[in-house]
Design a protein around this nucleic acid. Structure first.
Length: 159
DNA sequence: GCCAACGTTGGC
DNA sequence: GCCAACGTTGGC
């Protein structure tokens, strides 16, 4: 009997709007989420499964906030940029045998009609416990299903 | 562009 | 193993 498909998990992933935006993802359809160089964020990458859902968040944006939805397309693989001496994220500690940094692939799902500004999120009681507030510099973290649904609804509103 | 927050590095 | 210095993130 095949293993039951696991419940999807929910994540928030930050990308600088100017560097890689939800529009860039829409054009590419699928992208590597490489360049993560924080151990806690890396550990979350390694917990991801195909099918997990992601709030794509624009940091340093105008405004900053959730910009759309993506889906995890692969489990973690070694982030090749760690071995590339010409890449600013090159890490001399990493070897082929013992990679230090990991990445997943993500697929475009949808872009919100407009980015939800942080100050709007701040007002939403269901989002009060989000790691966005308590861990301001963490670029990847899990969301509860309720948090994900709440953000998705805010992003789908017509107005 | 400034700068606070905070994760990481490295000297001891 | 402590902790000061450093570097980066990211809101404003």
């Amino acid at each position: 009997m095949p293993a039951p498909h696991p419940e999807p998990a929910y994540w928030l992933m930050k990308s600088e709007q100017a560097e890689f935006s939800i529009d860039d993802l829409q054009k590419k359809k699928r992208a590597h989420w490489d360049g993560v160089r924080n151990f806690e964020a890396r550990n979350f990458l390694r917990e991801m499964h195909r099918g997990d859902l992601v709030i794509f968040y624009h940091s340093d944006g105008d405004p900053s906030g959730p910009a759309g939805i993506a889906r995890v397309a692969s489990t973690a693989q070694p982030d090749f940029t760690q071995w590339d001496r010409k890449n600013p994220r090159f890490d001399a500690r990493a070897t082929r045998e013992r990679p230090l940094w990991w990445m997943v692939d993500i697929l475009f799902v949808k872009g919100f009609r407009r980015v939800i500004p942080r100050e709007v999120l701040r007002e939403v009681p269901a989002l009060a416990r989000m790691k966005l507030w308590t861990r301001p510099r963490l670029s990847i973290f899990p969301l509860t299903r309720r948090e994900f649904d709440t953000i998705q609804k805010l992003g789908s509103r017509e107005e």
